[in-house]
Design a protein around this nucleic acid. Structure first.
Lengths: 192, 192
DNA sequence: AAGATTTGTTCACTTAAGTTAAGAAATACT
DNA sequence: AGTATTTCTTAACTTAAGTGAACAAATCTT
């Protein structure tokens, strides 16, 4: 797990042994069980996540039912909105599978960032990159139909379709579970 | 214009006079005419934008017609994806109105960031904030209907509905111009 | 293993968006 | 000012998503 983390970091900055040891002294790694709720609606939090293994999802409860809006899997980093704006969370975060998650408290990060400017640089680069990518994903979503979005998902994140329940995928695609079922049947129909 | 910029920056870090002077020495401010194209599809660029006055939009050309996916107005900062991934742009950026735009070349930013860690911190905070907000906007988009999205837009960015052509708004809302017309008629109908 | 719950599919019906086309209104152009 | 172009609306028709319900399949639970 350490290696996975350091390999990831090395894409942004190169760490000395000392810096690596500082990170390892922080008790960042957590094993989580499927179904564990990491954050609840209404709750405040200072935790950012980095998925080493497994899958976590964010979901809202609107009119009584779940709307899943995002999945984070291996090597995905994620800071919830409530950490940034210091307000109660508007959504839940839970674990789709058993996994290993790195959890970094904001005070921790601030500490490390002020001691090692390298981390500050890494965080900036990573955020800039994720922001650009998020915007592109959003663009793609806006400019395509549910069917195109599903086909696109099969291409870009084929694992998700396997590891995540259909009804969660449906809201991730901005539609109802029944529509996803129908849409899939339609695609198979077209192939023949 | 200088004051607008420094007021904005002061929300993230406090600058010394020296640091302010460094910024002002960089020839960042540009007046732009409505219709000016800042970036074309296929083109490479290192420029980030900060809108002091006016409105810029990003749009794709898909099957021959424009799909507008984002608007940036007063105090919005924006770095195109092609700057981050060093690849040719997949979309255009153009000016919706006459305006004043701050344009920062990446070399410039790198220079300033390495001389003044404060800027690095500001960029990290700003990116983190924008990323969190973008995700929330995306969530909202996914979990609502075109009509809800339009009503939401009237609440949150009422200026946009005034200053931007309907057909650009339509693709921003993920629908066709005719559907936006119909949807607006439907809303007015409901009021009576 | 039996029963309960969650998950996924199908169907009939409703609602709204996509499509194509025509025309009105506003804006830009010379 | 008059013409051309762009922008916006309306309408009829098509297509696909939303809704509610029933059922099948898979998965917990005990």
């Amino acid at each position: 797990m350490k290696n996975i983390l350091f390999d990831f970091i090395s894409k942004y900055v190169s760490l000395s042994e000392e810096e690596k040891n500082v990170l390892l002294s922080l008790d960042l790694f957590h094993t989580v069980k499927k179904g564990t709720i990491l954050l609840e609606e209404g709750q405040k939090s200072n935790d950012s996540y980095f998925v080493l293994k497994g899958c976590i999802r964010t979901y809202y409860i609107i009119d009584g039912d779940e709307k899943t809006t995002a999945f984070y899997t291996e090597l995905d980093a994620y800071t919830p909105h409530c950490v940034i704006n210091k307000a109660p969370s508007e959504y839940f975060i839970s674990c789709v599978e058993d996994g290993i998650i790195l959890i970094a408290d904001e005070n921790m990060s601030a500490d490390v960032n002020s001691k090692f400017p390298k981390f500050e640089i890494m965080c900036r680069k990573l955020s800039e990159e994720l922001l650009a990518k998020k915007q592109t994903d959003f663009d793609e979503f806006k400019t395509s139909s549910p069917e195109q979005r599903y086909l696109n998902l099969i291409q870009k994140r084929p694992d998700l379709v396997q590891r995540v329940p259909q009804h969660q995928l449906a809201s991730y695609l901005g539609i109802k579970p029944q529509s996803l079922s129908r849409l899939r049947a339609r695609i198979i129909e077209k192939k023949n």
